[in-house]
């Protein structure tokens, strides 16, 4: 499985390539539509993470994190707009998003934002 290979690769660009290869494999098999979709999302996520790292001047690690973790780190670093955008892009359900945001804001101690709920 090229996906397992992808997990081991640390270089961002080649990782995305590997995931895309996995995507291709899955889409060849029509029973694997779900997996293909997931891989598509994965490569999109990795690209977004690359952008995010650039935006934060490499101060924050995003690459390779899960969707949840990425959003959390966005909020923790005062980029909650970006978090909202990821939420929309990846169709994150409200419930999970708010739980995550709640936790993130609490760790920040950002009670003004908490009040704004």
């Amino acid at each position: 499985l090229s996906l397992e290979e992808a997990a081991r690769i640390s270089d961002p660009n080649s990782k995305i390539t590997a995931v895309k290869a996995a995507h291709k494999f899955f889409s060849d098999d029509k029973d694997r539509a779900f997996e293909a979709k997931m891989m598509d999302e994965y490569s999109r996520l990795l690209t977004v993470q690359q952008q995010l790292e650039k935006e934060s001047d490499g101060k924050v690690e995003f690459f390779g994190a899960s969707v949840n973790e990425t959003m959390r780190r966005c909020i923790l670093n005062g980029m909650s707009k970006r978090a909202d955008k990821i939420k929309a892009d990846f169709k994150v359900p409200e419930k999970r998003f708010w739980h995550m945001k709640l936790h993130a804001l609490t760790t920040l101690g950002d009670f003004e934002a908490l009040d704004a709920f």
Binding site: L1, A65, S66, V67, N68, V92, R96
Partner: peptide, 14 residues
């Protein structure tokens, strides 16, 4: 499954 992958990372697909 989608939830799981998004929450814990796509590397759990295998």
């Amino acid at each position: 499954k989608r939830e799981v992958l998004q929450a814990y990372g796509y590397n759990f697909l295998p």
